[in-house]
Amino acid sequence: QNEKLANELKSLLDELNVNELATGSLNTYYKRTIKISGQKAMYALKSKDFKKMSEAKYQLQKIYNEIDEA
Rank of each mutant, 00 (worst) to 15 (best):
L60R: 00
K40Y: 14
N7C: 13
I67V: 04
N7S: 11
K31T: 05
D14A: 12
L21G: 05
K46V: 10
L60W: 01
I36S: 07
K4M: 10
Q61H: 04
K48M: 14
Y29V: 03
K10C: 06
A41C: 02
A44R: 00
K48R: 14
F50G: 06
S37C: 15
D14M: 12
A56N: 00
S54R: 12
D68Y: 15
A6V: 10
T33W: 14
A41I: 02
K57D: 00
K48Y: 08
K51C: 12
D14K: 11
E55N: 06
N19S: 07
E55F: 07
D49F: 02
L13I: 07
L5K: 02
E69L: 13
L60V: 01
E69A: 13
S11R: 14
A41K: 00
E15G: 07
Q1N: 10
I34K: 01
S25L: 10
A41M: 02
T23E: 04
E66V: 04
K57W: 07
L12Y: 02
D49C: 05
E15A: 12
A70W: 10
K57Y: 14
S11N: 10
K52G: 04
E8P: 00
Y64I: 13
S25K: 12
K48L: 12
F50T: 07
N7I: 11
Q61P: 01
M53K: 01
Y58M: 11
E3N: 07
S11D: 09
N7T: 11
E66Q: 09
L60I: 03
N65A: 13
M53L: 03
K40F: 15
T23P: 04
L26F: 04
A70C: 10
Y64H: 04
I63C: 03
K52T: 07
L21I: 10
L12M: 06
K10I: 09
T28F: 13
Y29L: 04
K31F: 07
M42N: 05
Y64W: 06
G38N: 04
L21R: 10
G38W: 15
Q61D: 03
L5P: 00
L12P: 00
S54N: 09
K4Y: 06
L60N: 00
N65T: 10
A6P: 02
T33Y: 12
K35I: 10
N27C: 14
E3W: 09
D68M: 15
E20H: 09
L13V: 04
L16P: 01
S47C: 07
S54A: 12
T23F: 08
T23H: 06
I63G: 01
I63Q: 00
A22T: 06
A6F: 14
Y64F: 11
A22C: 11
K52Q: 10
T33R: 14
N27F: 05
L13S: 00
I67D: 01
Q39N: 06
L16N: 00
E66R: 06
L9M: 01
K57Q: 04
K62P: 00
A70G: 04
S47I: 10
N27D: 12
L16D: 00
K40D: 05
K62F: 04
G24C: 14
L45P: 01
S25T: 10
Y29A: 04
F50E: 06
L60D: 00
Y64K: 11
K40H: 06
Q61V: 07
G24R: 15
N19P: 04
S54Y: 11
L13N: 01
I63V: 05
E8Y: 05
A41H: 01
N65P: 01
T33A: 15
L26W: 05
Q39E: 10
Q39F: 09
E20W: 15
M53N: 02
L5N: 00
N65D: 10
M42R: 13
L13R: 00
A44I: 02
K35G: 04
N2A: 13
K52W: 05
F50W: 08
K40W: 11
I36T: 06
Q61N: 05
K4Q: 12
Y43E: 15
V18Y: 13
K31Q: 12
L12D: 00
N27A: 12
Q61L: 12
T23N: 06
Y43R: 14
T33K: 14
I67L: 05
R32P: 01
A22E: 04
R32S: 06
G24P: 04
R32M: 12
K57N: 03
F50R: 05
M42W: 12
G24F: 08
K57C: 08
K4W: 08
Y29H: 05
K35S: 06
E66F: 07
A44G: 01
S11T: 12
T23W: 10
E69I: 12
L16K: 02
D49W: 02
K48E: 04
K4V: 09
K62N: 04
T28H: 12
V18I: 11
A56E: 01
Y58V: 10
F50L: 06
L9V: 02
Q59A: 11
E3P: 03
E3R: 08
G24V: 14
N65Q: 12
N2M: 14
S11A: 14
Y58I: 12
N17Y: 14
F50P: 10
S37V: 15
I63L: 07
L21W: 09
E55C: 09
T33I: 14
Y58K: 12
Q59S: 07
K48N: 12
E15P: 02
D49V: 04
N7E: 12
L21T: 06
A22F: 08
N65V: 06
K52E: 12
A22N: 08
L12W: 02
E20K: 12
T23Y: 06
Q39A: 11
K62D: 03
G38K: 14
E3L: 09
N2G: 09
Q59D: 07
V18D: 09
S54I: 12
N7W: 11
A56K: 01
N19K: 15
L16S: 01
S47R: 04
K35H: 07
I36G: 03
T33C: 15
D14E: 11
G24E: 15
E55Y: 08
K31S: 07
T28W: 14
M53V: 01
L12G: 00
A22S: 06
N27M: 06
D14V: 06
L13T: 02
G24Q: 15
S11F: 08
E15M: 15
N17R: 14
S11M: 13
K4R: 11
L21C: 10
I34D: 00
A6M: 12
K4I: 11
L13F: 03
E15H: 12
E8H: 03
D14R: 12
Y64A: 05
S25P: 11
K35P: 01
N27R: 08
Q1P: 11
Q61F: 05
N2C: 14
A44E: 02
K46L: 13
S25R: 12
N7Q: 13
K10T: 05
F50I: 08
K48T: 04
I67F: 03
K48D: 05
S37D: 03
L5M: 06
K62G: 03
T33D: 03
K46C: 10
G38S: 12
K57R: 07
K10M: 08
K4P: 03
Y29Q: 03
A44F: 01
N2S: 11
F50D: 04
A41L: 02
A6G: 03
G38I: 15
E3Y: 07
E69S: 10
M53H: 00
N27E: 07
Y58F: 11
K40P: 00
Y58R: 11
L5Y: 02
K57V: 13
N27H: 12
A41F: 02
M53C: 03
E69Y: 11
K51L: 10
L60Y: 02
I63F: 03
I63A: 03
D14Q: 11
M42G: 04
